[in-house]
Amino acid sequence: MYPRPIPETNRSARAAYVTLVTAVLVLWLLPLVTVMLTSLRSFEEVMAGNYWGWPKSFNLVENYTAVFKQTALARYFANSLIITLPSVLGVLILSTLTGYVLSRHRFPGNRLVFALFVGGNFLPAQIMMIPVRDLMVGIGLYDTFFALIIFHTAFQTGFATLFMRNFIAALPDELFQAARAEGASPWQTLWHVVVPLIRPALAALAILTFTFVWNDYFWAIVLTQSDAVKPVTAGLNNLRGEWVSAWNLVAAATIMVAIPPVAMFFLMQRHFIAGLTMGAVKG
């Protein structure tokens, strides 16, 4: 291990180390902590300019209820879920198929197709903005959930294909030969052999895709207009404009928007890290 581990016997060094790390962590997360604190304050306190003192009253429940009752946040939340969950499902299905074929089948152009998936996944979103927006307007999906679901599914399939292909390519080839020799059809091989073996990859991909799609802002403002379809990220920015002086409520909304991906991250941390590094480092 590098750096050299602090010996278990040296308790004071360990305590000092943990204290140091905690201090760095507090600094690191300070911006977020101040927002959290603000989200607990009352409106009067915010108006009076008490941003940094100890909150006079804790308005946790009031503020967070108010955000849902008085603003469209609940609607935005529902929209985000309606957009994110089908996109994740779509990406998992499509990338399992593409990853399986690209990793296990030799055909001319295999490498080119793979390179297109990988390369396309790095393109800045602005490159495809005009045609995609035009396409969605053209087929009447602009400002509907479908516009975002279709786009996110398509775009995330690029990264997910890289991920799945590398994961499946690392599985022992003889398992696939055995399945074929046993008479399993390609579909049976996929369902009975590939899918059970790639469960960890599916979990990692699910959480990564969830985070990416949930956090998207650009496409939210390019492909939607109305509150009825806007996801939370675009919604939050709207709220900020509407509730300029009610900082405590905006803060509460900000925290609410952050909670799903952070919660997902803590629930499936192992998969998230594995996914991120594996996706980046290639299987």
Binding site: T233, V262, I273
Partner: peptide, 12 residues
Amino acid sequence: MFFVPLVLASVT
């Protein structure tokens, strides 16, 4: 806890 900023939306 150090990883948290990574999962925040850029809007956040």
